[in-house]
Design a protein around this nucleic acid. Structure first.
Length: 156
DNA sequence: GCCAACGTTGGC
DNA sequence: GCCAACGTTGGC
């Protein structure tokens, strides 16, 4: 029995890991998420094949730049046990890992960037539940409804 | 580079 | 369990 496909938005700083980086490598473990809410979405919500809006944050034109898909079930983020990693978490133990991730696979780049500025203009159509346009929201992984997915891609 | 928002930590 | 201090995110 296969559950219905779900949709997500995932933020990445292009200076660290851009949509072009993802296109090059094909599939990437989404490591470094250190926020419980974002982790829970990956661990409890994501299923292989789910759609991902790839979002560039902290850059000149923040916005949605591509589409990816969930390519693995959730598994422990190995960087949490790597002392040399920026993401090392001394409080996490291998027998009880604190941080989980999924693999993310490249699908395509959008024909153009759907900028945050533009998305904000459609806030009414997207509904109040859309976390990206809610003031002060810093979540790096968030759910997107099928309707929001469709609407956002219709802007492309 | 600034700073508002907000999550986490740790003293009490 | 409260809450001040602190660190991070991320738009601008």
């Amino acid at each position: 029995m296969t559950a219905r496909k779900r949709y997500w938005l995932m933020k990445s700083e292009p200076d660290t890991f851009s949509i072009d980086n993802l296109r090059k490598v094909g599939t990437e473990p989404w490591n470094g998420v250190r926020n419980y809410q974002a982790r829970n979405f990956m661990r409890d919500g994501m299923q292989v094949g789910d759609g991902i809006l790839f979002y560039h944050s902290n850059c000149t034109v923040p916005g949605i730049v591509g589409i990816a898909r969930v390519a693995s079930a959730a598994y422990p983020d190995p960087t949490q046990f790597d002392r040399k990693s920026d993401y090392y978490d001394p409080k996490s133990r291998p027998e009880e890992p604190r941080w989980m991730l999924v693999d993310v696979a490249f699908e395509r780049k959008l024909a153009r960037t759907i900028a945050l500025e533009e998305i904000k203009q459609h806030a009414d159509a997207l509904g109040e539940g859309f976390a990206l346009t809610q003031r002060g929201n810093r979540l790096s992984v968030m759910p997107v409804t099928a309707a929001q997915w469709k609407y956002l891609l219709s802007l492309e």
